[in-house]
Nucleic acid binder design. Structure first.
Length: 207
DNA sequence: CTCCAGGAGTGTA
DNA sequence: TACACTCATGGA
């Protein structure tokens, strides 16, 4: 059994267990902001920060650009790295509004991905989250959960090849790509809470 | 108390 | 290319 078969089996396994998941179907601005906030932090802290930003009317890219940094820092402190994340939010929001503007919908995915990656504070996962969940583009998010579940399934491919394989096996379909990543997170939260993965039965997929 | 969470940038070899 | 280090709060 090769790596392609393992990924295929993993996809089938998750699909049969969870079905289609409409994962992180939020507005564009919230996805962009959340993509930065979720860096090295639990999602529960992100939702808390997003709620505070909303209550302070700082939940849009426009307001992020014009607000005092201290106001943003106060809202997102619970996500950790709040000073660095505030700087990243301001850079990213400014880039999207001033450099991309309304033409962002017309920029090809690969070109837009490269553009996002040039921004300080935007790495592969953040860029792919924005593209996949904020703009419904054909890309797949490789994050800590994805790596963990794949490792359990005996898949040892590097991120770049893993992303290409998921893209191919999910037919470059945005709905399937979003759903699959959601399934991975649901599974990981259910069975991989501890490091040992004692209740994880993914390795059985290998036959 | 310790450990780590849906990262990314920088410096070092 | 491959690590080690930094950023920082909060929950288990």
């Amino acid at each position: 059994m090769n790596e392609t078969d393992r990924v295929h089996n993993l996809i089938s396994f998750l699909d049969s267990g969870y079905g289609y998941i409409d994962w992180w179907n939020a507005g564009f601005d919230e996805v962009v902001i959340g993509a930065i906030l979720t860096q090295q932090t639990r999602w529960e802290n992100v939702t808390s920060a997003l709620r505070r930003l909303s209550e302070a009317d700082l939940n849009t890219l426009e307001s992020i650009c014009t607000a005092e940094p201290e106001m943003i820092e106060a809202c997102i402190r619970c996500t950790g790295f709040y000073r660095i994340k505030t700087a990243r939010l301001r850079r990213l929001a400014g880039f999207i509004i001033n450099e991309l503007g309304s033409t962002i919908r017309e920029i090809p995915t690969d070109e837009l991905r490269e553009a996002l990656l040039t921004i300080n504070g935007v790495g592969e996962e953040t860029a792919d989250s924005i593209l996949c969940y904020g703009l419904f583009r054909e890309t797949f998010v490789i994050d800590a959960y994805t790596r963990k579940v794949c490792r359990c399934a005996g898949i040892t491919l590097p991120d770049r090849e893993l992303r290409r394989l998921f893209l191919e096996l999910l037919d470059h379909d945005n709905n399937r790509l979003r759903s699959c990543h959601g399934q991975i997170i649901e599974y990981a939260k259910e069975y991989c809470a501890s490091k040992k993965c004692s209740t994880c039965n993914i390795q059985a997929l290998n036959g």
